[in-house]
Computed example of a mutant assay.
Amino acid sequence: MRIKIIYIAVLLLLVSLHPMVAYAQLPEGTGDRYIRVAEIGELADSVNVWGDVGSSGRYIVPERTTLPELISFSFGYTQLRGNDANINWAKTQIEVKVSRYNENRKRVDVALFRYRYHDPEPVEMFEFDLQNNDVVSVQVRRRPAFTDYVGVVAPVIGVVATSFLLIENLRGN
């Protein structure tokens, strides 16, 4: 009888420590990428940050947070993906899009801010009022450099040249 009680207690302990049980105890909709910036008890909004930022996710931010502050909370713009370590930021364009349902939830309203990396952020970004459940998408774009074109054309030329040499070799020439 005593062994049964110990067995049940150990089993309950193991089940309660299982990660799925702990995950089930979180509020609905929370997960690994729920980031709290606002202090507990402070009026806050939940805003989604997606795209080319250092840490995308759902942020709980203080009310009246500006777009530049939100981008800073998400660790700023990421470096462009690719093999080029020395990016020419002068040719880089930043695009910040904010999407939200309108009051009657029939359509999505979009605010778009575009500027070059070396230009100052548009004043409208500082004046834009973020609201609960806004979706902020950030995209970093740049003009293709010469190495980008070479990276596309060189493999094609290599395949054509290899195919030609293979055909000539099979012919016996």
Rank of each mutant, 00 (worst) to 15 (best):
M1T: 14
M1H: 13
R2L: 11
K4Q: 13
I5Y: 12
V10R: 06
L17D: 09
H18G: 08
Y23G: 11
Q25A: 15
P27S: 05
P27I: 00
G29N: 03
G29W: 06
G31L: 07
D32H: 13
Y34K: 03
I35E: 03
V37D: 07
E39Q: 12
I40L: 11
L43A: 15
A44H: 13
A44C: 07
V47P: 01
V49R: 03
G51E: 04
D52L: 06
G54S: 04
V61Q: 06
P62R: 10
P62H: 06
F73H: 05
F73L: 01
T78M: 09
Q79D: 12
N83W: 14
N86V: 11
I87T: 03
N88E: 02
W89V: 02
K91P: 09
T92C: 02
T92L: 00
T92R: 02
Q93G: 10
Q93A: 14
V96D: 03
N102A: 06
E103G: 06
N104Q: 14
K106F: 08
V108W: 00
E121G: 05
F126Q: 14
F126E: 13
F126I: 12
D129C: 00
N132W: 04
N133G: 04
R141L: 15
R142Q: 08
A145V: 12
A145K: 05
G151Y: 10
V152G: 06
V152T: 10
V160M: 03
I167Y: 09
G172H: 05
G172Q: 03
N173M: 11
